[in-house]
Design a protein around this nucleic acid. Sequence first.
DNA 1: TTCCTCTTTGCGGATTCTTTAAGATTGCGG
DNA 2: CCGCAATCTTAAAGAATCCGCAAAGAGGAA
Lengths: 218, 218
Amino acid sequence: MKAKILWIEGKRAEGQYFVPDLRKKDFTVEIVSTGKAALGYLSKDKCDLVILNAASYRTSGKRICQDIRGNWAKLPIVMIANPNKPVSKDVGADVLLELPFTIRKLVNRINPLLPYSSNDVLRAGPIHLDLERRVVRCLEKESHLTPRLTSLLKIFMEHPNEVLERKDLFRRIWNTEYTGDTRTLDVHISWVRQAIEPNPRKPRYLITIRGIGYRLDI
Amino acid sequence: MKAKILWIEGKRAEGQYFVPDLRKKDFTVEIVSTGKAALGYLSKDKCDLVILNAASYRTSGKRICQDIRGNWAKLPIVMIANPNKPVSKDVGADVLLELPFTIRKLVNRINPLLPYSSNDVLRAGPIHLDLERRVVRCLEKESHLTPRLTSLLKIFMEHPNEVLERKDLFRRIWNTEYTGDTRTLDVHISWVRQAIEPNPRKPRYLITIRGIGYRLDI
DNA sequence: TTCCTCTTTGCGGATTCTTTAAGATTGCGG
DNA sequence: CCGCAATCTTAAAGAATCCGCAAAGAGGAA
């Protein structure tokens, strides 16, 4: 199930620069251009998260935030602010992001706010990891994971878009120091790729950082 | 005896997504599309539980709840709500479930509400465990259980769809720590399977979670 | 004793983990 | 751009671990 984002954009629409990227990252994005339209949308359809591009508004966006919170108290809100136009920190959003930022940073801030289908399901982009059942689903693919593979993938999903070094992975999963005389980690990485990558030979999510370790790109 | 559920669905019918799953889980499900139809159905036929998919209604569903309670005071009601459309907690339902949720969660909330034929009969899906007589029935099969097997199965039925770890089972049933140097638990599990599984060699209910423990899937 | 229940034993089989080794890829110096 | 060395990938095989269950032993009650 894709997560659905409602993007509230002002007149200038410069924030829509991010929307295609978000869609590429496997989110559904709806765009409205006023706070009023947002409220109208929410009264008819549901979404998982709101992004309010306050940088494209004259006003602070605080009012819109409050209106949303008045009716959908638990709906997570990410607010994008312009650093040249300082905003009081207590605008009511869960996350306040100042321009400029990368799409990667945006995704990293969104992910922890999304609702999970269960307490034991980790989610990062299109990857869903059921820790209890040790089942991972990514796009159309669903696979069973062994205990080691589960904890390996779990660490990556808890640190998306960060390079995890071989020595750290060895410490966290094998409780040993990395000496470089074994290929165990590589083999396990290969198996995780079999489980999550559309094309395991050309990894798109679990990326090799030669000489250092690996990174999960969401 | 299968438990019978009356599912009250609005126009949009998105909740019927769950109905096939419920039937797979060994419930009988009747569907009506209005509160009035529900009352009409209840005046002619009986059921064990009502699920009111309030998320598919404009109105809060509170009215329908009250109408049912007015005539069938003890009939358990599960209400499905849309978290974006907050409902006062006191709607009159026994359980209020917010979308989204898994079929597993739904079943877990339904089970404790179902009427038992006696106080000492546990029920989980098609499995009925008479604690007093120590008799278990599952589908067509009925078996006598020893005291140990009874308490083992009881624990699973009190925690359906949860992984129970070997160490917890040892603590709860044997009051010892699990050391892994005995096959006692496996043997008891095997006997429970003989009692409840249609095909004990290919368990369908009592599932092994290798390296961890077991889980009763309902 | 006989019956019932629970535990232990032993081993086959399945799963998971690690190592090996051949080949591919990457980065770098020249 | 070329060639080499370092690094990575992955199939395959071997090792280690875990589980299932038949059978036998142990203990208790009637």
